[in-house]
Computed example of a mutant assay.
Amino acid sequence: MQASASKKGKGDYRMAFEAILFDCDGVLVDSEKIYVSVEREHLARIGLDYEIDEYMDRFQGLGSDDFWAELDRDHRSLGKGPLPESFGSELDAATMERIDRELSEIAGIKQFLDIHEGPRAVASSSRLQRLIHKLQHTGLYAYFEPHIYSGEQVANGKPAPDLFLHAASRLGVDAATALVIEDSANGVKAGLAAGMTVWGFVGGGHSHQGHTEQLLEAGAHKVVDSHDDLAGLLFNSKKPN
């Protein structure tokens, strides 16, 4: 089932979906602002300076292997050779320190999940153990377990459709009846490639000017700005308390 393209905004939008597939970072947990801050800071130290719009457009939602390959290619293009051997471990350590200190769930998600009935899954580009850690840290793990899927578990990461198709298969639902909630252009493209309805989400702390337009340009059928907004569209306009 496909929705027609729509501008951001609230309205009477009645649709039934067999399952909801959520991206994690920036949709369930407010981690993208941490990742972007730490990554851009560390990359600048090795000469890779990206404007925020370019960074979000190129890298947000990208599978881990593709992310590192792109950074390595950029570093080599500067005549600096491959990324420094210690870069990945240093970035990981700095990121996890910030996550353990600052990470919280996106406002309204627990109230939404308390209302939602039916199959649902997490489908994230994050490495599986880190994905589980973030969900446990924010108290969201029990809402999804065992349907928590990582890009590590499929051959091709987002923007390829593999991860969303894998999640739908494990849930036992037809891809065409699934709704994807995504905050990145790469994630939107992955959901569309899987033949699913995709709604963009711009309620995370990392959302920036042009984010809505970026998701619509990637093909999102609709963009919502909060989990209250999402609940209003899916649950007869009744929002969580």
Results as ranks from 00 to 15, higher is better:
44 A>N: 14
128 L>F: 15
187 G>P: 09
49 D>W: 12
88 G>E: 15
237 S>Q: 11
60 Q>V: 12
149 Y>G: 04
142 A>N: 14
82 P>W: 11
204 G>R: 07
167 A>T: 03
41 E>P: 02
13 Y>P: 06
140 L>D: 07
2 Q>R: 15
84 P>S: 05
187 G>T: 10
131 L>K: 07
191 G>P: 03
220 A>W: 06
204 G>T: 09
92 D>P: 01
46 I>M: 04
37 S>L: 12
159 P>I: 11
7 K>S: 14
231 A>G: 12
238 K>L: 13
77 S>Q: 11
23 D>A: 05
209 Q>C: 06
210 G>V: 07
83 L>K: 13
184 S>R: 05
90 E>T: 08
130 R>I: 11
219 G>I: 12
234 L>G: 02
83 L>Q: 11
157 G>D: 05
65 D>K: 14
162 D>G: 00
221 H>I: 03
136 Q>D: 09
60 Q>K: 15
62 L>Q: 14
171 L>F: 03
98 R>H: 09
187 G>A: 13
23 D>E: 13
84 P>M: 03
216 L>D: 03
175 A>L: 02
61 G>D: 05
181 I>T: 02
66 D>W: 10
224 V>T: 10
212 T>V: 15
177 T>C: 04
32 E>C: 02
104 S>W: 12
228 D>C: 01
122 V>D: 00
69 A>C: 09
106 I>L: 12
85 E>N: 13
222 K>I: 03
220 A>V: 04
174 D>L: 05
16 A>Q: 15
211 H>W: 13
19 A>E: 02
88 G>P: 08
148 I>R: 03
212 T>N: 03
57 D>E: 11
113 L>N: 07
143 Y>L: 00
122 V>F: 01
77 S>E: 13
78 L>R: 14
7 K>T: 11
171 L>W: 02
156 N>H: 15
96 M>T: 14
122 V>R: 00
76 R>Y: 08
61 G>M: 09
140 L>M: 08
165 L>G: 00
213 E>L: 06
199 W>E: 10
153 Q>S: 01
184 S>P: 06
82 P>T: 06
186 N>T: 08
86 S>C: 09
40 R>G: 01
116 H>N: 05
221 H>M: 08
